[in-house]
Design a protein around this nucleic acid. Structure first.
Lengths: 227, 227
DNA sequence: ACCTGAACACCGTTCAAGT
DNA sequence: ACCTGAACACCGTTCAAGT
């Protein structure tokens, strides 16, 4: 029901509903209560409106999520090139900004990443900082293209893992060590050896640290592949 | 309803239902009709059984999907080390096998990748071939650990993109050139330059080729980071 | 044009009752 | 122990009717 509880067209200038207002309310629900709380009926209730009113501004639920994806990527601040800094750092900064933008709405990011249309549609613009950095690195177009694809895919996969876990860091050790030691003998010998060599302390996984290590690996790979 | 259409416990040895039988039917539905076709009621119908019967073998729908994730990774054949081949090729083979296993059930892979419990639970064993290869490469334990994380994250992200395109009902091959040329001037200059330099033919994206390029980049990165 | 109420065709899951 | 039927509390979306 609306504010007056009456059907019919609202007075001119009243404009209780709009695409932007609907998306803002939807984003709020997703951020506060999670993805599956965002139903059309719940969204309508949050707006104080009949569920069907939404359909006059957005064709269906998928369109709501597509709109939310836009909002997420709109939060991706342009990465200004560091004055005089090495292009390698610029690549890393682009990746850091990309990760930060998606982490700003953790409940939504998983949906954005697995929604085909959302990803492909919006990546076109958000990928520019990577191209800028690699172009400045003097790489040939083909190498730039492949490198950006690789690094963006990595960030997507990294976020998949990171957002699936609650805390910023978590103890791999109790889980992993136990699990590895429970394995049938010789089932995963190399994994067992590495886990034992690292020990419990070495397995305390830190997502920020893991991200940085991977960026270094990737940038090194770009350099040695292109050079 | 069951075969007889009657309630009550089946005769001994009759055993119409089992966890394995339920999961097999569920996998069939997902493969044939897609993820969202796999509802508890649809699954029951496929088994010729009352929807509620399933709950005696699996606690809920999430457990069904978790069971399906196991099946997917069970399809990951052990990668035998190439006799006398370089360890770099062994790393690539591990990644190829991992990708192939997930692509064997494309409709399910997206679900598996975004399901936290599924991924972390099962990765423990499936990750062994990567550890074996990198250990043979003589890398220190820490470098092995970071490298495997990076490459697995990349494969996840790559699959996200690859399977999204395939799963998309409309808008199959997004024409990057068109989209870039429609952009406001100076919005993405570096991207525009690269796209123009590559031309239409150079942008016909081939997932197999893209995957191989990325693997080379990653292996080079591993080498130069550890060495 | 914009909003509403009722209705349709579904969901996952609980519960009590059958054998 | 295993299966069933009815029921509960939801869904997304269509449609006709209001102003």
């Amino acid at each position: 029901m609306n504010t007056a509880g009456k059907p019919g067209r609202p007075r001119t200038g009243e404009q209780r509903l709009s695409r932007a207002a609907i998306l803002a309310a939807a984003l709020r629900i997703v951020d506060d209560e999670g993805l599956e709380a965002m139903t059309m009926r719940r969204l309508a209730a949050a707006l104080g409106v009949n569920p069907m009113s939404i359909y006059h501004h957005l064709p269906n639920k998928a369109a709501v999520f597509a709109g939310l994806a836009e909002l997420v990527f709109a939060g991706l601040d342009d990465v200004r090139p560091r004055p005089g800094g090495p292009w390698q750092d610029e690549v890393k900064d682009a990746a850091r900004a990309y990760r930060a933008a998606l982490k700003a709405h953790p409940n939504l990011a998983l949906q954005v990443l697995s929604d085909p249309s959302a990803v492909s549609d919006v990546v076109v613009v958000t990928v520019e900082p990577f191209y800028r950095a690699l172009e400045r690195g003097g790489l040939p177009p083909r190498a730039i293209f492949e490198s950006v694809n690789t690094i963006v895919d990595f960030v997507h996969g990294f976020l998949l893992g990171e957002l699936s876990v609650r805390a910023a860091t978590f103890e791999l050790a109790p889980d992993l060590v136990d699990r590895v030691q429970k394995l049938p003998d010789g089932k995963a010998p190399a994994l067992t050896r590495v886990v034992n060599a690292l020990g419990r302390d070495g397995l305390h996984y830190d997502f920020d640290g893991g991200f940085e290590s991977a960026l270094t690996l990737l940038v090194n790979g770009i350099e040695s592949t292109a050079g």
